[in-house]
């Protein structure tokens, strides 16, 4: 062991140098005190964002409701913002939003759930390692691309099969939106299912149940609230989705249940009106905020609901 030169014979006296540096430490003291303040201010930006959203939506919506009675807005079946005697009924938009979301969930719900079952219960590790990143790619495609796909590819195909379908219709964007939401439901449901303890599965399998029976009698009931939460988030995502419906469903404000027709969603209305000529201060302009506020409240409720459900779920283990 090279112990030839010991610690003592050295020129630098570190502790003394440190002690000396300490004396001029005022600056670092200041840093130490101001950093948390700066970080706090940065963190409060997220709170300001929420306040900003609420404040703008509410104040401008109030302007709107001073001109259009709130009751008329929520029960009106006519939406004619640009006509001579304009009408501002929300129901056509609400209808378009709900119908497109229902179509999307009819696609994304079962397929997402079945994908989750496959990934969590059946797939080998190797298969899962290939499939999951691919599903993530699907989730990463910008919605504008899906909009393009719905409008220029899916709609023509649907029309070839079912000629009554209009060039802009709610069916095509609904279906494509469903595909877009599959990865979200698949991955959240899969998380819920993989966190079901293996002991529960083994108990069932040991009694001679098949994997299928175990999945439906043990895993899904145990992961139920997590699965529900993933569906709720999927719905919230569908309600808030904008570009696909804006492009592929057109802008007619029909209050109808005919999925072959063009319908407008709340989001598409906002795009149409804000991107258009509506000057600040007009009723049309304010209607933007009333619709957006409704949309915001809807998605907020969905998100809170999803959190509430999945928290209950976490308590179970």
């Amino acid at each position: 062991m090279a112990n030839s030169d010991s610690n003592n014979n050295t020129a630098v006296n570190v502790s003394e140098m440190i002690a000396q540096n300490k004396k001029k430490k005022n600056l670092s003291n200041f840093t130490e005190k101001s950093v948390p303040v700066i970080l706090f201010l940065l963190a409060s930006i997220t709170v300001l964002t929420t306040i900003g959203i609420l404040y703008t939506l509410i104040t401008e919506a109030i302007h709107f409701f001073m001109e259009v009675p709130i009751w008329d807005f929520f029960t009106g079946t006519e939406l004619r913002p640009l006509s001579q005697n304009p009408e501002f009924g929300l129901l056509p938009l609400l209808n378009g939003t709900i119908i497109s979301s229902v179509i999307a969930m009819l696609v994304a719900g079962p397929i997402g759930l079945m994908s989750a079952i496959y990934l969590s219960e059946y797939a080998s590790d190797r298969v899962r390692r290939v499939l999951k990143p691919l599903l993530e790619v699907l989730a990463g495609i910008p919605t504008i691309v899906y909009g393009f796909f719905a409008f220029t590819f899916v709609t023509p195909i649907i029309r070839a099969i079912w000629p009554q379908v209009e060039a802009t219709n709610i069916l095509s964007p609904g279906l494509v939106m469903g595909v877009m939401i599959i990865p979200m439901i698949a991955s959240l449901s899969e998380d819920a299912m993989t966190s079901v303890p293996n002991a529960m599965r083994e108990g069932s399998l040991a009694m001679g149940a098949t994997k299928l029976e175990t999945t439906f009698k043990v895993v899904i009931p145990a992961a139920f609230s997590g699965i529900i939460a993933s569906f709720v988030l999927g719905i919230s995502r569908a309600i808030g989705e904008t570009m696909i419906v804006t492009i592929a469903s057109g802008s007619s404000k029909n209050f109808t249940f005919d999925i072959t027709e063009s319908m407008q969603t709340m989001t598409a209305y906002i795009v149409e009106v804000s991107g258009g000529e509506a000057a600040a201060g007009t009723t049309i302009y304010y209607s933007l905020y009333a619709v957006a506020l409704t949309l915001f409240v809807f998605t907020l409720i969905m998100n809170l609901l999803a959190r509430y459900v999945s928290r209950k779920f976490r308590e179970e283990y």
Partner: peptide, 26 residues
């Protein structure tokens, strides 16, 4: 040493060697 304000490279080199020797792993 650095967090306590010692920046001089030569001093640091010396401290590193001395400390590693002190712990017998130089």
């Amino acid at each position: 040493p650095k967090i306590h304000g010692i920046r001089n490279k030569k001093v640091l080199d010396e401290i590193v060697e001395k400390s590693l020797r002190g712990a017998y792993i130089w």
